[in-house]
Design a protein around this nucleic acid. Structure first.
Length: 831
DNA sequence: CGCTCGTCCATTTTT
DNA sequence: TGGACGAGCG
């Protein structure tokens, strides 16, 4: 490592030299002095340390982004690096955009030329340049998980693999996991138990899948990383190009990198020109022999990684926490800087967060602290149903709003996307402006995928999947039979599916179908002239939008939608118009952008409208999406067993711990106010189930919490009338009308309030929450039984539906009328 | 070949 | 609850 330390010394000495001619800045000061303003000592070190490897362990809210951007700015300001020598990897496109902005704000124009992007975007850029090296073309398609699922589904069917328990979903996830480990079909076969027929079939599928991708000139998400690693290993001279170029590599959210990403970084930071040609296809194992690169000019790039193992929440998709915990072993001599001071939250919030996360064993103890004071207590609330819970959130949002807090400073988190429904309903009804972040379905809509498939069909004629998708959309009378005919013809003639379309007359299909094929072929050809001018000249910026417009119009897509009277078809047209608008916008931002660039962007930017600001509205998102964000007020909803921790995680090794980290991430997003809410009952899959408070709630010290309504309050006598029903009236808004119980007629009837308790008394439930839940045990009820309800009085059971804890009694009360009650928890007794 | 209706299915997190 | 898919009919 002498070379490395030499490089470190060299690098470290530069600022001092440069400092002498710091130009406009005050004489003698470091040119990056202003960048260090307001930083605490560890932060300063994180910005100024120079060496081959630096690990910044950055607790939540410790100013990590600020440190990272200043470090980049400092490198530029001191002329230690040209912008083009910097590669900064972030986890999301949004984070990349923000980082670029912040660096630009610090150093201005000179930020241009830096690569600041996600792993995936960076790899696409590299692959577009180098694809020809190994049997792809630069027009390759990027398959998103839906595309690859479709392909896998077809292969599973062809191989009759489901007979071996290989469902498309299982196959896809297994392949993905393997690719994240840099394994391919061959290397996997070597280690697999091939006497197991299911394994043999899987290997077969894996291999076929990969061949199909190659044939289609396509990469799936995992390939973008894995194939780049493969490229670097198989072609050292190519790798050297990038090693020479990127002298400073920074990786954010390092705890969430998977093995392939780790390997990519490792390849990029190796000394230049020192590769022993690796064995092709040697997936899986990596050997890092110390490279005797004596020439300091060949030293590897300097690497900075930032992360927090307490915030590792992507193990389920291959993130390997060891990448960060063993960083010092992988990069001997690495400097480690710890950022523990928190600049975001109040001490109460941090204490709660520390308390929760400390229940994870096998972690380095780390305690966030702040000097801003204790702050407000954490508010707890238990709703009767998820609607009730949502109404609490909506009401509280309004209260906060009236105290002057902007909507954009509030966020609501949930574990699963499906939970957003109830929130949305209530927010709409309560006229609370909101915006759902992430999970944008725009690019998942069928019509959008169709439209994009048209573009792919033009830009990457090898992509048969895209062609198959659009060949009969809109309906052209080309069914499976015809498709098979075309496919066979192509195979016989040794041409591509796309080229077969151009020979429609030779296919031997009926005249009507032949004409349809010829027409489609002509439209595709015309569009390709617009978007891909032959003679190497650049297409005009408008080409993508124009080509798309043409495809949709002449392809008959618009007409078909207009002709149909389906209710959603109008919306589909609007969505397509929106896509065209997106293409125009893209052209404005990227005057030289090609159709490929456009497709890349939409493939990798999952939620394009994330870039739009959410100003003026409350943000709703999953806990995963929340990572890296912060808000003055945060609502974590659905804090229930089986939700967080999610029930599926229970069986998986490390699952509950990861769930705890997820909860921790949610808590630590809050600056000033934190709300934790749950519901006693939750309707999922159309069934009402009884929910139990999350175990994580009990890990928060009592004195930090103020329960507006504890789980005990809801079911012990009295309960509350659903806030969803009465809150509006309480808050004096004129919104009462829609309130009545009828709105919830199909829902379980909330328990009306008979006696109001002093809320917030924590001693009574003392977080021994589950014990407080009313439980009627296995009370047996049958039609005809008479029962007494604490609030509704006496009634007669009409029917009993459901099973176990979900049994529901349909009761006709003498005075209160018909109600549905969950037998297990309703305050009832048999007469 | 296309459409409708019915069934059945599955429901974690995402670049 | 609702979304996806298959069988069966027009």
């Amino acid at each position: 490592m002498t070379d490395a330390s030499a490089a470190a010394q060299r690098a470290a000495s530069i600022p001092l030299i440069v400092g002498a001619d710091a130009g406009p800045r005050s004489a003698g000061a470091r040119p990056d002095e202003d960048l260090l303003e307001g930083l605490n000592p560890p932060q300063r070190e994180a910005v100024t340390y120079r060496g081959p490897a630096l690990l910044i362990v950055a607790g939540a809210g410790s100013g990590k982004t600020s440190v990272l951007t200043r470090r980049v700015a400092s490198l530029l300001r001191t002329r230690e690096a040209w912008p083009s020598q910097i590669l900064a990897i972030t986890f999301t496109n949004k984070a990349a955009g923000e980082m670029r902005e912040r660096v630009e704000a610090l150093v201005g124009e000179s930020a241009r030329g830096m690569w600041i992007s996600t792993f995936h975007s960076a790899c696409v850029r590299i692959l577009r340049r180098e694809a020809e090296q190994f049997g792809f073309t630069k027009s390759f398609t990027i398959y998103d998980s839906g595309d690859s699922r479709a392909l896998i589904k077809r292969l599973v069917k062809e191989h009759e693999a489901d007979a071996f328990g290989l469902t498309p979903a299982a196959t896809q996830s297994k392949i993905s996991k393997l690719k994240n480990e840099l394994a391919d079909a061959e290397s996997y076969a070597r280690s697999a138990n091939m006497s197991d027929p299911a394994e043999r079939v899987f290997v077969e599928l894996f291999g076929a899948y990969q061949r199909e991708l190659q044939r289609a000139n396509a990469f799936d998400f995992d390939d973008l990383i894995g194939q780049t690693v493969f490229l670097f290993r198989a072609f050292p001279h190519v790798a050297d190009v990038y090693r020479r170029r990127f002298r400073h590599i920074l990786v954010d959210e390092y705890q969430d990198t998977n093995h392939a990403q780790y390997a990519l970084i490792h390849e990029l930071t190796r000394p230049i020109g020192s590769d022993a040609p690796p064995l092709a296809g040697a997936g899986g194992m990596m050997i890092f022999e110390p490279d005797p690169a004596d020439d300091p000019d060949k030293a590897g790039a300097s690497l900075t990684v930032v992360g927090d193992s307490d915030q590792s929440i992507y193990a389920f998709r291959g993130a390997d926490i060891r990448n960060i915990s063993e960083f010092e072993r992988d990069y001997p001599g690495a400097r480690v800087v710890l950022l523990e001071q928190n600049y975001r939250s109040t001490q109460n919030i941090l204490t709660a967060a520390n308390a929760v996360i400390s229940n994870n064993f096998d972690r380095k103890d780390k305690k966030l602290w702040t000097d801003v004071g204790a702050g407000e207590q954490i508010i707890g609330f238990t709703g009767y149903s998820q609607h009730d819970e949502a109404q609490f959130v909506a009401d509280e949002v309004e209260v906060l709003r009236r105290t002057g807090l902007d909507y954009s400073q509030m966020a609501v988190f949930y574990r699963t996307n499906s939970q957003s429904r109830a929130l949305e309903e209530i927010f709409i009804r309560s006229a609370v402006p909101y915006k759902i972040m992430g999970g944008t379905k725009f690019y998942d809509r069928a019509e959008i995928k169709d439209a994009l498939a048209y573009l792919v069909a033009v830009s990457n004629p090898a992509d048969e999947m895209a062609l198959r998708r659009i060949i009969n959309r809109p309906r052209r009378g080309i069914g499976d039979v015809t498709i098979e005919t075309i496919s066979r013809y192509a195979q016989d003639e040794g041409i591509t599916f796309r080229d077969a379309l151009a020979n429609s007359s030779a296919l031997g299909v009926g005249p009507k179908i032949q004409a349809a094929i010829a027409h489609l072929d002509a439209v595709l050809a015309e569009a390709s002239e617009i978007m891909l001018p032959a003679s190497g000249e650049l297409a005009p910026p408008t080409a993508v939008a124009a080509g798309l417009q043409l495809l949709l119009t002449k392809g008959g897509y618009y007409d078909a939608l207009r002709a149909s009277k389906g209710a959603q078809d109008e919306a589909r047209i609007e969505n397509l118009d929106e896509l065209v608008a997106v293409a125009r916008e893209f052209a404005r931002n990227n005057p030289e952008g090609t159709v490929l660039d456009f497709l890349t962007e939409v493939a990798l930017v999952s939620d394009a409208d994330d870039l739009e600001d959410a100003s003026g509205s409350v943000s709703l998102m999953t806990l995963h999406t929340a990572k890296g964000l912060e808000y003055d007020a945060v609502f974590v909803t659905g804090v229930e067993e089986d939700l967080i921790p999610h029930r599926i995680s229970a069986g998986e090794p490390g699952g509950p711990q990861e769930e705890r980290r997820l909860f921790y991430v949610g808590i630590t997003r809050a600056r000033k106010r934190l709300y934790l809410s749950l519901a006693m009952t939750r309707a999922q899959f159309g069934e009402v189930t009884v929910a139990m408070p999350s175990r994580f709630l009990q890990e928060i010290p009592n004195e930090l919490m103020h329960w507006r309504q504890s789980p005990g309050d809801v079911n012990s006598r009295g309960g509350t009338q659903s806030r969803a029903l009465n809150a509006r009236r309480q808050s004096g808004s004129g919104f009462g009308g829609s309130g009545g119980g009828q709105r919830y007629g199909d829902d379980l009837v909330p328990l009306p309030r008979s006696a109001r308790r002093e809320p917030g008394a924590i001693d009574r439930f003392a977080n021994k929450i589950p014990a407080k839940v009313r439980d009627n045990g296995d009370m047996e009820l049958a039609p005809g039984d008479r029962i007494r309800h604490d609030d509704f009085g006496e009634g007669r059971v009409d029917a009993v539906t459901g099973e176990g804890a979900k049994r529901v009694a349909h009761v006709r009360f003498d005075s209160a009328g018909p109600k549905k009650l969950l037998i297990k928890i309703a305050p009832i007794s048999k007469l």
